[in-house]
Design a protein around this nucleic acid. Sequence first.
DNA 1: TTGTATGCGTTATCAG
DNA 2: CTGATAACGCATACAA
Lengths: 368, 368
Amino acid sequence: MAESPPTIYDVASEAGVSIATVSRVLNGYSQTRAATRDRVLAAVRELGFVPNGAARGLSRGSKRILGLVFAHTPADDDLLAEEEGSLLFTDSIVRGAEESAERHGYSLLLSGAGGEHGDHAASVNALTGKTDGLILLDRVLPERRLSAIGKRFPIVLLAGSGRCRSAVTVRVDNEGGMRAVAEHLVAVHALRRMAFVSGFADSPDSASRGAALCLAVTELGGELRPADHLTADWTSSGAARVVQQRLASGGEVPEAIVCANDQMAVGVIHVLAANGLHVPDDVAVVGFDDVPLARHLSPPLTTVRQPTRQLGVVAVESLVALLEGIAPTRRDIVLPTELIVRGSCGCVADGDARGSAGSAAAAVVGSR
Amino acid sequence: MAESPPTIYDVASEAGVSIATVSRVLNGYSQTRAATRDRVLAAVRELGFVPNGAARGLSRGSKRILGLVFAHTPADDDLLAEEEGSLLFTDSIVRGAEESAERHGYSLLLSGAGGEHGDHAASVNALTGKTDGLILLDRVLPERRLSAIGKRFPIVLLAGSGRCRSAVTVRVDNEGGMRAVAEHLVAVHALRRMAFVSGFADSPDSASRGAALCLAVTELGGELRPADHLTADWTSSGAARVVQQRLASGGEVPEAIVCANDQMAVGVIHVLAANGLHVPDDVAVVGFDDVPLARHLSPPLTTVRQPTRQLGVVAVESLVALLEGIAPTRRDIVLPTELIVRGSCGCVADGDARGSAGSAAAAVVGSR
DNA sequence: TTGTATGCGTTATCAG
DNA sequence: CTGATAACGCATACAA
């Protein structure tokens, strides 16, 4: 049905020149006489010619395609688990990466690493053939696999632990962000007994946030008992569930609950309310990410902003640099985070729905 | 630095066979003696061989890559406009599409259609060379451009108006969903004066939702004045802004405000509260999408659920069918929506944070 | 400035 | 069952 698309040969004969000339005017490295160039361009338009990417890639040895691999959230049996907590986070990264890739003349290939069932390693390996380089998100592959592939193929790690030596890593300053949270809670609100709600147990991001919070809280004279280190799954429902269990188990209610992302904070606020606990009067709640909705919740969410989109941008730029043979200045790139103080920690929120005005509605505390 | 990857020739000589044999065992169409097959496989593993996608695509005339093109939200000057309202929606589609593509043996190429500045048409045209088929989201191209490309290249439209004849369209039943909303508001809550908050003015989805609501409300004896048809931009802030203006302009406050998506509903609830109006006692608010957070808001959001992920899945399947030469049964595929009744319309919410149990916590009303 | 010829890595069509 | 070999569409070194 669909007749095969025009090739460079069609254009050449249409314009009465050789394919070499067509190629030249299209890629414009060499000089071409204006007249012939116009003829070629006319023919291109006439035929609606678009260079075949496969042929081009084969010929010049570069497909101009970058791969971005993320780990599928285990949707499991739970059909409602569309509620993917990592969703906002991942997708913001994707946006940034796509935009940056395009700007550098590349396209972005997306992969969920073979779904949940499939062999992640095999899936990533296959992508190796379709792309020029790969960006791997948190949790897609164990470190040893990583270095195995990283030695033979350009790779950038995103939001990893930063401990992998065989590849460039881009991540955010979880430690600084959590320290800022701890300081604020202890110094400003005089809170002592904290709890932490984590994402997936195997997430480096979640782990480093929990560890940093615990360390800072302890140093500042607060307390974060192991029993109050709650393990959830990045989702509102998951967080609500573990907090519900924690409340049901009796024992003193923590004075503050810090969550590894904003979705979970919403779930926590919700379940606290269901138990007659008011935020922030009875319990302070803090999130992480600063998703757009955060400022519109009631109370507006105090949270740690991380430059999610920028994460994607920087990852792509690092990868492109790698591909162009530029030796990476640093193998561990850390992007800053900042504490955004709103109402859920007990501060008086004065911000309204407007956020574009000159001065931000919320206080900002740098993490570094 | 990176030595060029092994080719099929390397594998062949390593295994002591011809490249034809290697190709055969790798693609497994023809029979091969077990012994030689093992030798080849061993060589493949040994060398870490991965077929070059470009060469493969060139040879077999199919790149096994599908493109998904979305319109970049005009981030404009406003740096905070990361607040992309369409984000959740688009990204859920992307997930579904990616998963489905992978299942069918394809990869997914993502494109924001040249950023906001670039020529969308040119951008889409270029993608034509890197992919086997394209899925175009709402707003990326005007209809005439669409049909121009659609005639020469496999295309599926997503969330369009459904009026394009030159391509298969996949969309949701906006009309049914909005009718259900109107009926519920009028019949159950005896509300009459409604308002509608739209997304971008040029979005078919938003337009059809507004039109359907208006029609249904009027038919049911309610009222939706032109002045109460508020045009926003899919974002919380945008919605908050237009509603604030509407309130400031005086005049009777609508009894219900229906929004074209959930993000905007959140912004509306927020700004209403800022004006001393309580939801749902003073004003009922309804959203659209049923994002995961919706049930955890206070009050839990009454909204229209649409199968976002499924949208991506179906689009991919339609496209793959097209590529395999299967004539599309229908050129306009409409996925069902359903009204999810929670608290923000005035109903008593009894659902808690759990949502996976046998019976849903919220009432469900089919749209058809 | 332009044309000719070769290579890129696979698949697929032939013979053997 | 296996091995040569011809496409596939484009870029490019080399000639003219």
